[in-house]
């Protein structure tokens, strides 16, 4: 599992790097961005995984979100993987913006032709952390996950399906679960459903939702369902409906600091 450094830039006394590697889960070359804070030069640091939304690559987050300052301040390694396998030559993978390339939805596909390559859930859950822990000064006991849109939902799924694995909880921007679309098959990846079956309430979920999010008003985001479920299951969630914000990276950049602090509180506790 050789890592190939694609780029390296000094940023807030740390380094923002991009690596490429051959993924065994996805059977393709995958890239991920990683920010190494200055603290990583002398100590092992917790790792925070960012799951991006639809159409994104590893570049979007590291270039647009402006998270590095907060990460450097709190001493967190932030890993931003790609959102789907690329170059697998699966038929129809590039036909739709919200299905196929750039839209892995962080699930393990069970249907052909996707099930060979589209195993993003396993990739993010197993392969990538192993790779990171083996090559960087990380504290494997302390990891956390957050994301935006589809990635936010993915983060919720990861957390809720793996109690205890993620030391702390889930940031999620603009809850990105298409909870109404593939109800039967994707039930296992429905964050709301998962919340209902979550065994304990040892989570602390912070959700910021732009109130003017076009997807919210289009009924594609159903946060109230999730909040109700969390209330029922007594999973502590603070859901902040942010007046005037939309779904964009501008929204992300506004609240990224809150979320990094939120994670840092637990990762550094």
């Amino acid at each position: 599992m050789a890592l190939k450094q694609v780029s390296s830039n000094k940023c807030f006394e740390g380094f923002q790097k991009v690596f490429e590697h051959d993924s065994t889960e996805l059977k393709c070359k995958m890239r991920f961005g990683i920010y190494l804070p200055p603290k990583a030069e002398t100590a092992k640091c917790p790792v925070l995984y960012w799951l991006s939304g639809l159409t994104c690559t590893e570049q979007n987050f590291i270039t647009k979100a402006g998270f590095q300052q907060a990460a450097a301040e709190h001493g967190l390694i932030v890993v931003a993987p790609d959102t789907s396998p690329r170059g697998c030559n699966i038929e129809g993978e590039d036909e739709s913006w919200d299905f196929g390339t750039g839209a892995g939805f962080y699930v393990d596909a069970t249907e052909d032709p996707w099930k060979t390559n589209y195993r993003m859930y396993s990739y993010v859950r197993d392969e990538l952390p192993k790779l990171i822990n083996a090559n960087f000064p990380t504290n494997p006991e302390r990891m956390s996950v957050f994301g935006h849109s589809m990635g936010g939902h993915g983060a919720l799924i990861l957390a809720l399906k793996n109690p205890g694995k993620y030391k702390c909880q889930w940031g999620k921007k603009a809850l990105g679960g298409y909870l109404g679309s593939d109800v039967s098959k994707w039930e296992a990846y429905d964050a709301t459903q998962l919340v209902k079956s979550y065994p304990d309430s040892h989570l602390d979920i912070l959700i910021d939702q732009g109130k003017d999010d076009q997807f919210l008003s289009a009924g594609q985001l159903l946060p109230d369902n999730f909040i109700a479920a969390c209330t029922e299951r007594k999973i502590p969630v603070v859901f902040r409906l942010q007046q005037g914000y939309d779904h964009s990276y501008f929204f992300i950049a506004t609240f990224i600091n809150d979320h990094i602090k939120h994670h840092a509180k637990f990762l550094n506790a």
């Binding site: 109130k211 969390c230 999973i235 502590p236 603070v238 859901f239 902040r240 409906l241």
Partner: peptide, 8 residues
């Protein structure tokens, strides 16, 4: 006030 939901 901000619009904030608290589940617990």
């Amino acid at each position: 006030t901000p619009d904030i939901r608290i589940t617990v």
